[in-house]
Amino acid sequence: MRRAVATIGLCLSLLTGGAATAATLQENNEAMFRLMQEKRGVTDTQIAAIRKIFQASGYAGQGNPAATRHPMTPQQAQAKLPQDAYQYYRNAQFERICGRKYMAPLYDPATQRPEDAKVCVDMFEYPNVPLAYPVTWIKASEAAQVCFAEGKRMGDAHEWEGAAAGALLPPDYRFDLGTPQAMRAAHNAKWGPSKSWTYGPQWQRGICAQGSQKSPGCNGGSWAGCGSNTYPVGSFPGCKSALGVYDLEGNAAEHMNLPLNESQMASRGSRTLGVTEMKGSWFIWDTIRAHEEWARWRAPYWHGTPVMSSHSHANYHLGFRCFADVK
């Protein structure tokens, strides 16, 4: 155990955020890229493409180092686990199906086996490495480009909801209704009576990475004033859906694709995509439940833009995870 803690501390020493590290955003990102290569096998070519996206953004990373104060270190998160985190979260069956580390197959357990899955999802928020802090301050368009750079893609709303609810069901988009607002209302009316959360039928405090606080004086979204005060991904091993996906509640909220017609469905090969959908609750939820939220809930059209718009939204609590079609 001591060796595991020391290893994670060495690999993630630049990712703890806050003034104590004296690290810049670029230094944090470079440490994260090295970790992605070492622990997930992301290639040099893929990292080069991802680096360009982050550099062009100027903000994408694990938060503003000057403002961010993470409530838990990777070493503290490791101490909660019975073995080295990188091994604890490995799943040989998932890797055979998905062809990559730290991805989980999505399927309907009522009628399918894991081997029947046609799509997999990152087990953790990006960078999808156990005990790394999630990426924030990234636009939906940039998140989609990062996923493409890894040979993955952004997920459709129904895929994220299936991961959270523990059963991937067929798409139920009401394209005939025409607007994101009308589609949302119809979907929530359908699923509201049977709402559930990733870990069960009742919402609970303390299960997921939701016990942090906003930066003092955070005014709703400034880079200088609002730290990404997130936890290392996988810090709460009980915050897991029935399909083996972590941190769908808590930590960063997540960009997702809401298609407005069939040609915008990422799950059917579109790279044009639809409009932005924000998924998941985030790091202050145990104290401030800012809005309704459950596994299949679809949010209002907050900061709505086309996913691939250069003006799509970024924020200190907003991140993403990638999906990949099974080949």
Results as ranks from 00 to 15, higher is better:
residue 166 G to N: 03
residue 151 G to T: 03
residue 163 A to R: 02
residue 245 V to Q: 00
residue 90 R to M: 12
residue 19 A to I: 10
residue 94 F to T: 01
residue 164 A to N: 02
residue 89 Y to N: 04
residue 152 K to A: 02
residue 272 T to M: 11
residue 13 S to K: 14
residue 173 Y to C: 00
residue 23 A to Y: 13
residue 99 G to R: 07
residue 5 V to Q: 09
residue 63 G to T: 02
residue 308 M to T: 00
residue 227 G to Y: 09
residue 295 A to K: 00
residue 217 G to L: 12
residue 21 T to D: 02
residue 234 G to T: 06
residue 77 A to Y: 06
residue 14 L to N: 07
residue 207 I to P: 03
residue 198 T to P: 10
residue 70 H to A: 08
residue 158 H to G: 01
residue 180 P to M: 09
residue 5 V to L: 13
residue 189 A to R: 13
residue 281 S to G: 08
residue 217 G to C: 11
residue 178 G to V: 04
residue 309 S to Y: 14
residue 210 Q to A: 08
residue 52 K to V: 08
residue 140 A to N: 01
residue 135 V to P: 06
residue 214 K to Q: 12
residue 278 M to F: 15
residue 133 Y to N: 05
residue 53 I to L: 05
residue 222 S to T: 09
residue 142 E to M: 07
residue 128 N to R: 05
residue 284 I to L: 08
residue 181 Q to S: 14
residue 211 G to R: 07
residue 177 L to N: 05
residue 294 W to L: 00
residue 138 I to T: 02
residue 265 M to Y: 12
residue 176 D to H: 14
residue 153 R to N: 03
residue 233 V to M: 11
residue 184 R to M: 10
residue 273 L to C: 04
residue 128 N to D: 02
residue 61 G to D: 05
residue 22 A to R: 14
residue 228 S to G: 08
residue 74 P to T: 08
residue 144 A to I: 01
